Amino acid sequence: MCRWLAYRGEPLQPAILILDAEHSLVKQSLNSPLGAETVNGDGFGFGWYPADAAQGGLPATFHSIEPAWNDQNLREITRAVRSPVFLSHVRAAAAPPIQQTNCHPFRYENWLFMHNGYLADFPLVKRDLTFAIDPDLYPHVQGTTDSEVLFHLALTFGLRDDPVAALAKAIQRVESVGADHGVKFPVQGTFAVSDGVTLWAFRYSTQGRTRSLFHSVDVPTLRRMYPDAERLSLFGDDAHVVVSEPLNSLPGTFVEVPESTVAILDPDGYRHESFAVR
């Protein structure tokens, strides 16, 4: 469906990952071997927390309906800023129209959210799911995607207090409504959520056959594995990236996030927790 990347660590020039990596996100937009679609050219988005802002401050976003490989503004911005936490997404539209308000990541206050996947038969369940959004949050839904509806459902169910529990409740609601409408496998996806301090990356589908998701091994370990890799000098010891597919071909640099799991990246490092929805 789509490809995405999320980074957390020392402030970094986003272009290092989004543009310059061996198999960067922009390169994945043209050639995505592990994706459901090889080409992801239906727009993109980039959201970042400025390096000079307080932790958990308001992020900035940039969205475009241009293909990521053809947008000069993306190149300018990702080389001009430095950020300790940023999210980027290239889109392959399944059904909703190609417009800026449908490009990820989505933002609410200090939160960013993005999704690779779909809510199956969304036109059948859209009304019920939309009506389940808190009325105070509903005016903030600007686009027409299932992903943005899911984000606002998670906000409704307490994302700002407990992102893991809130997304589980939101997915439970989607699966319940889907079952009422005869949808066999309502949810497919990998999801990224951040408040500017912590990054949560989820891998879950109703069917148990979720799109690919990986995160990098910690940098000190990588330096021991590849002492001659000059590119590692660009990263601090706390740098971690979560990706739809690996950014390079070096063995052992990325590990797959298991099915029904949330990877949590925070100031203490990274850890995996079971993501039990039912």
Rank of each mutant, 00 (worst) to 15 (best):
H104W: 03
P105I: 03
P105H: 09
P105R: 08
P105T: 10
F106M: 07
F106W: 08
F106H: 09
R107V: 15
R107G: 10
R107W: 08
Y108F: 15
Y108W: 15
Y108E: 10
Y108A: 11
E109Q: 15
E109F: 12
N110H: 15
N110V: 09
N110C: 12
N110T: 14
W111I: 09
W111Y: 15
W111D: 11
L112G: 07
M114K: 02
H115Y: 07
H115I: 02
H115E: 10
H115Q: 09
H115P: 02
N116F: 01
N116R: 01
G117Y: 05
Y118S: 13
Y118I: 05
Y118V: 05
Y118N: 12
Y118K: 06
L119W: 03
L119D: 06
L119I: 15
L119H: 03
L119P: 11
L119A: 06
L119Q: 08
L119R: 04
L119F: 07
L119T: 07
A120D: 15
A120E: 14
A120W: 08
D121M: 10
D121L: 10
D121N: 14
F122K: 08
F122L: 12
F122A: 05
F122W: 13
F122V: 11
F122T: 10
P123H: 12
P123T: 11
P123N: 12
L124S: 13
V125Q: 07
V125G: 05
K126L: 08
K126Y: 10
K126Q: 15
R127L: 12
R127F: 12
D128Q: 15
L129W: 10
L129H: 08
L129D: 09
L129G: 06
L129C: 09
L129N: 11
T130M: 13
T130W: 12
F131Q: 15
F131A: 15
F131P: 02
F131H: 13
A132H: 07
I133F: 01
I133K: 06
I133V: 15
D134W: 05
P135N: 02
P135E: 06
P135G: 03
P135S: 02
P135D: 00
L137N: 00
Y138D: 12
Y138W: 10
Y138R: 14
Y138T: 14
P139H: 02
P139I: 05
H140N: 13
H140Q: 11
H140L: 01
V141D: 03
V141S: 04
Q142L: 07
Q142P: 02
Q142K: 13
Q142G: 05
G143D: 08
G143Q: 01
G143K: 00
G143W: 01
G143I: 02
G143E: 04
T144H: 07
T144W: 00
T144G: 05
T145E: 00
T145G: 00
T145N: 01
T145V: 06
D146W: 04
D146K: 00
D146I: 03
D146G: 04
S147N: 01
S147C: 03
S147F: 03
S147E: 04
E148I: 02
E148V: 00
E148S: 04
E148M: 03
L150K: 05
L150D: 05
